[in-house]
């Protein structure tokens, strides 16, 4: 549809198309971004292109917590000042980022890369759950704080983790207090999130 308005066709239309594939960006915003880059200096486009390629190039995951990292062990896992006995389980790297920003949590993390979502065919084997269980079996962890979204699927995942971890003699807890059900963690403000982390309950 947008190509009708494209005098230059080809490369410009392709860029608009590429932008509109990004989450939260509709065709109008994609056009606006593209026209911005047409008007801006060529350095601006080069910086954007270079950052994208560099990100893909260097992107890897921490071998312990599976967060996005530029090294085999991420800075959080490598930081011995953090509480090595407390492990916070999140759905996505973005959730970890949001919790870090609230700067009340001092333990370690584990990123599942999703949530058990039966209707979408996502089961425990599609997530970093076995890796989590292996970490817990290693013995240093005394509490697993499940910070998946407070949705039906987030709750189901929390219960599944509880059932898997409980026999290993390790406590599992869940975010609580102040966080309403239904919302995504990534949108929580820092005050609410801090309260939810502190007021966690037993699973």
């Amino acid at each position: 549809m947008t190509s009708n308005f494209m005098p230059a066709g080809g490369s410009v239309a392709r860029l608009i198309d590429a932008f509109s594939r990004l989450p939260g960006i509709g065709p109008k915003t994609a056009q606006r971004l593209t026209y911005h880059l047409i008007r801006a200096s060529s350095e601006e486009s080069e910086l954007l292109a270079k950052s994208l390629l560099e990100m893909r190039d260097r992107l890897q995951f921490c071998s312990l917590c599976h967060n996005i990292s530029e090294s085999t062990i991420c800075p959080i896992c490598a930081n011995t000042n953090r509480d090595q006995g407390l492990l916070c389980v999140v759905e996505e790297p973005l959730d970890l980022f949001v919790i870090e920003r609230a700067s009340v949590y001092q333990g370690l993390y584990h990123v599942l890369h999703g949530v058990i979502s039966p209707m979408n065919g996502v089961g425990p084997e599609d997530l970093k759950i076995q890796e989590l269980i292996d970490r817990v079996k290693d013995g240093k962890i005394s509490e697993v704080l499940v910070a998946t979204n407070l949705s039906l699927e987030g709750d189901a995942t929390a219960m599944y983790l509880h059932d898997a971890i409980d026999p290993l003699g390790v406590r599992t807890t869940r975010l609580a207090g102040g966080l309403p059900s239904g919302g995504d963690l990534e949108y929580a403000d820092e005050v609410t999130l801090s309260r939810a982390l502190e007021g966690r309950r037993e699973l």
Partner: peptide
């Protein structure tokens, strides 16, 4: 806005 934790209707719109 139902993915926001401030949504007043999200809790009424979970599956089941």
């Amino acid at each position: 806005g139902t993915r926001k934790t401030t949504s007043r209707i999200a809790g009424h719109l979970e599956p089941l």
